[in-house]
Design a binder for these strands. Structure first.
Lengths: 235, 235
DNA sequence: TAGTGGTCTAGACCACGCC
DNA sequence: GCGTGGTCTAGACCACTAG
């Protein structure tokens, strides 16, 4: 039950990265410096850094150090390519349904645990646009149990996952996804401003988190004609 | 340059799992048993097991042991896994073009390094069927430099990645992929036995490997109507 | 209670990047 | 040459699972 030492150091460093004490490109203190600072051995310092690496916060370079990097979406997360880097572009996100209590979905490819179904479901729907053109429709469902005050909350940088991490200390630790190519029906064609019958990428996803019995279920419809969906992984 | 101790133990165990010495559901020797068997310390034994866990071969249970588990489900191609190890159905693979020397592709979304372009390109094209229905068309390109004898070789269990691992000790260590929904043209519709205009999932992939300057470039077209493409990740 | 994995200490040697 | 991360040893205590 007790939190391991390495985890508190890991969280400490993570927090400093999120606060901007260490910015992207900066190097964290070396393992030996961490040993001194926290009065621990290298094994423990390494474990903390290893975890930060696994979570995609840092990159480790033999002979150089641990460098803070832009958080990669390599938790098997799929992301719209060029979405976050779309510097010149105007990225907008528009709520079609604000976060609120809704019914739990059924007919979903991933099983929702009974513990979750006992609690009310929070849902929201967003439309993502680049240069005012809609490219993705996104639905999220999750149990309200662990997120007091979420409904009234503004998302951190417009990001749901970032909000979970910074406001609730909940991290995504796993995912399973199903991908299908399909064609737009009248409803989707209208929302995404494409022809009926145009190809769409449908993603059904289940994200597990660091909180027991708290999972996120999502359904996305992506118009990949201009922005393909990307996925990268580095061991 | 030298292979770490833990890796040789990891590979030893991996090989025994692949050969069936340890079957799904079996428990590997405990950490202490590995210490004795290989004359190592627990740190090293743990590191080997941790790697096997990361690669999805085993599950670790506090107080019980390390259990061999089924590797990722679905057409887990997105999770770095080959196709043939992943599906429970009757999977057949048919070569449309046997491995041979071909021109390097261009117009590919991922850059091919100059070192690779200096060497001849090996290519093959396969049609993957589940229960006799074609579900996926697969093209692979890669440099011939590190794979002597590949062209005459039979694939291990019909799996390209398994062949690389077992016959050449080359492991996939990273990937980047681009996904698009598109519609079948006349050529694809004929090969995959679907209507012209039916939705298809196109995947362009770049796999990096444990060998420097050896990468695999692939293009897939998947009919996801019956078999969605899956992707799972567990920290 | 015995055996397992999870955490942690206090050392050591090595390979890599950089000056 | 020096500091970095990568590997490895030889211990220790703890928490979990099971008989």
């Amino acid at each position: 039950m007790k939190e391991p030492l390495y985890r508190s150091i890991q969280n400490d460093l993570k927090f400093q990265i999120q606060k901007g004490v260490y910015k992207i490109g900066d190097y964290l203190p070396s393992e030996n410096e961490l040993c001194v600072a926290y009065k621990i051995t290298r094994t423990t310092a390494r474990k903390a850094l290893d975890e930060l690496f696994k979570d995609g916060f840092i990159q480790r370079q033999h002979g150089k150090g641990s460098q803070v990097i832009e958080r990669r979406k390599s938790l098997g997360l799929l992301s719209l390519k060029g979405f976050s880097e779309a510097v010149g572009k105007k990225v907008e996100t528009q709520f079609l349904q604000e976060p609120g209590f809704r019914d739990w979905i059924n007919n979903f490819p991933f099983k929702i645990s009974e513990k979750e179904l006992e609690n009310p479901c929070i849902h929201f729907e967003r439309l993502r646009c680049v240069d005012s053109e809609p490219v993705m429709l996104e639905n999220n469902w999750f149990s309200s149990m662990h997120l007091p005050g979420f409904i009234e909350m503004e998302l951190v940088d417009g990001s749901f996952f970032k909000t979970l991490s910074q406001n609730y200390q909940i991290e995504i630790i796993g995912s399973e996804q199903e991908l299908r190519a399909m064609t737009a029906d009248s409803e989707l064609s209208e929302l995404l401003k494409i022809q009926i019958g145009a190809p769409l990428l449908q993603i059904n996803a289940h994200f597990s988190t660091s909180k027991k019995d708290f999972n996120i279920y999502a359904e996305l419809f992506c118009n990949t004609a201009k922005f393909p969906v990307g996925n990268s992984y580095m061991k």
